[in-house]
Amino acid sequence: MSNDKKIDELSGTEVTGHEWDGIEELNTPMPRWWLGIMLLTVVWSVGYVILMPGIPLLNSYTKGLLGHTDRGRVDTAITDMHEARSVYAQKLLTTDFQAVLKDPDLLDDPAVFRFALAQGKSLFGDNCETCHGARGRGFIGYPNLNDDIWLWGGSFNEIRQTITYGIRSTHDESRLSIMSAFGRDEILTREEIKSLTDHVLSLSDTTKDKSPRGATLFAQNCVSCHGENGGGSREFGAPDLTDADWLYGGSRAQIRTTIFNGRQGMMPHWNQRLSADQIVALSVYVHSLGGGE
């Protein structure tokens, strides 16, 4: 501090010498206990560094005597969460959702249903949205789960079966069917495929011309799975060709490609990745998206 102390006339307090537009800063002394508190925080920080992880080293860091780690806390929190959920998880397995979803009155604890929906929603986000899109909106080749159109069935049990074992997955119990590549494997000629495409188009759109040749080809090659009138079959996961919904697109070119190359959409089996109760929750959620039967 400088020797020539300047004193503010009005307050009689020494000034620091800092001045802004004629306003000078007073050098009011701090109370000594304030300094004490600051020193206390310094002492505290020493103790803190000793007890808690603190100083970064080259490849590691000081661990601290208390052995605290944030990861450890997350692990504990997750364990606690699973424990808290286990009560409801048990109830998910013992509840007959196939019946409950038809008649909600059968459920004695509505919280179980809400728990299933909440857990199903987050599981869907983590596991299913990659292919089926946000909230199961669907893309070309990946079914929309909001509508009432189901390839393999939309009841709770069917949905659960599909999620558990997958479609054309590597699991032995997987749902399985084959849509042949009629063109690539030279089962039909290009001309025949063109006629067949015309016929398939006319199934859902009555304004389109009927093709007698196509109808014959359809009867020979397609009815075994898609049904006599093209109404589809859930036994084989064969789509209804008479409705307005097309999994792989409904334009002439898209339908022709489907017949030419065949379609082998695949969904993995989830029974190894998800627990049985999680699959129940997921099935309830998918059922609740609007199309559940």
Partner: peptide, 18 residues
């Protein structure tokens, strides 16, 4: 109101909002 999807067309041609 559901925004994903904005609306759903059902098999009978009716339109559904959630």
């Amino acid at each position: 109101r559901d925004r994903i999807p904005n609306y759903v067309t059902l098999s009978d041609g009716s339109v559904r909002n959630g």
